[in-house]
Design a protein around this nucleic acid. Sequence first.
DNA 1: CTGTTAGCGCATTCAG
DNA 2: CTGAATGCGCTAACAG
Lengths: 328, 328
Amino acid sequence: MADVAKHAGVAPMTVSRALHDDPRVSPSTRVKVLASVAALGYRRNEVARSLRAGQSSDLLGLVVTNLANPFYAQLALGVESFAAEHGMTMVLGNTAEDPGREKELVNNLVSRRVSGIIVVPAGSDHSHLRPSGLDGMPVVLAARPPSRAELDCVLVDDFGGALAAARVLTGAGHRRIGFLGPLPGLWTSAERFRGFCTALAEAGLAVDEQNVRFGLRDVPAAEHAARELLHLADPPTALFAANNRSTIGAVRAITGARPRTALAGFDDFELADMLGLPLTVAAYDPAEIGMQAARLLIDRIDRIERAGNDTPPQRVVVPTTLTHYGQA
Amino acid sequence: MADVAKHAGVAPMTVSRALHDDPRVSPSTRVKVLASVAALGYRRNEVARSLRAGQSSDLLGLVVTNLANPFYAQLALGVESFAAEHGMTMVLGNTAEDPGREKELVNNLVSRRVSGIIVVPAGSDHSHLRPSGLDGMPVVLAARPPSRAELDCVLVDDFGGALAAARVLTGAGHRRIGFLGPLPGLWTSAERFRGFCTALAEAGLAVDEQNVRFGLRDVPAAEHAARELLHLADPPTALFAANNRSTIGAVRAITGARPRTALAGFDDFELADMLGLPLTVAAYDPAEIGMQAARLLIDRIDRIERAGNDTPPQRVVVPTTLTHYGQA
DNA sequence: CTGTTAGCGCATTCAG
DNA sequence: CTGAATGCGCTAACAG
């Protein structure tokens, strides 16, 4: 900056002002400065810029549990696009569902003085995400609600979506319906199970524990569990799968099995219509979650900057829509 | 830091040293300092830290063209995991294939003084990515090679993979084979087309322009183009699709068509085995590209820090393997 | 082993 | 409208 100032024959301060579109600098001076900037290929140092106290870094942190899952990739895209629209840059970390790693990443982001953080929390206790312990850094939770901490969050209508999808099965007259899902400790998983149970109860059906399988982390695990259910003495005539991993596993197990088992699930996925079997899914847009989370976060950041951060935590729920796929 | 120093009864410099595991600080002092750090909940300001000249920010920039594509999400995961292993944090931007946006993002990253940048370039002229114009910032290209600039890069064996996959079709006796691909301006696309042409030439076949469709940006476009080919007076008996979007479009067009058209493609994708038609794909691991790119970049960064950045640009090629899927 | 000095690049504050 | 002084938080380099 000093070089530019010398080149333009002004003081560094004037260069700074010209770069800020400060109206107090005369047009002629501004032109001179900008010419020098171009001539010298000068680029403002954002690090120094954000060192100045209270300055926002215009960085937005995102911590997800598993980028390999298209769901989180889409979510990240939603965050990135909203952030970019607002002049912010996204810093991304992956926890692999490890709460320890999550803590590391969040600390790292706080140390870098990002403006705020969006977290898909890995554990069930989120007390370490309270802004009070994070130098006041605002935090928004995505996909999973806060526990032991009051935070903004964006959720999917897990209960409602599961209820609606499961109702399709009960409505079709099925009376023995199996459940496949990931770890029951995950809030989303528990909510979807609750929706499933409610649909059964509405139809006057009891949930048979024998037909319920949790802890299915990936497609092979889900496929294996689904096959087990289908080989029971009195197998379910329909399956409900609580996420796209489970649904795909179920599809693999069901395909070719006799008699054909009905299937409904949570999460849409590509090629769902090409699998040669009827399928109902509770669908929603993962990018929407990311965008909403970014919106909440940026709102909160603005409010903090205006020193009026007294709003209570917000909770946004993204709705689901039921999609039916027929046979290919 | 001053507060910690006061609390511990030492000078700020000593705190700094204790936090760095500087061996010159006595164990007793270190303990005292660390206790104060814990007591006050102190967190070092990484912004100030990296303001010091020449200091690396331990940030690694990644600029991709389309995060919504699982390919790039996996690539990002590869970068993130390698970076994290080396104590670096990833900053991610999405260009949506817009070269202007790419320039913005790269400039932004340079301004933030990241340690280096990995770019999946959107345009065909990469002269703006030369480190010389970027304050010496090292750049590694991923998935597409540099033009008008000497840069490290990581590529897929586009030619070889396409050749092998197309040979499966010619080897099966097909003599009229259609080609579906994205914009021919993309290097990957051009290379895959070259592989396709080579396979045909080996079999003594000419490439019929009528059977070649480029510019297919998404699945619907690919499906539409594939249907057009299948409705020609003398339709191809096999199709070669140059990426997973094209392949999926082709699958949609072929399914249910009579007579059944053979299909081979570039890129593996989930559920490829469940589509009820035989399919051969040239597969590879997208995360591997990200990891290799991060490795090249970190190598280069290390070399620059040791002031020995005289190595010529490296080029790493990730191999493909042929995968055959039968009928479901 | 510990402390002091100085400065990274920028922008706020106050003087011209 | 422009400039000079000052400090953000940290750490090399040099004393003690």
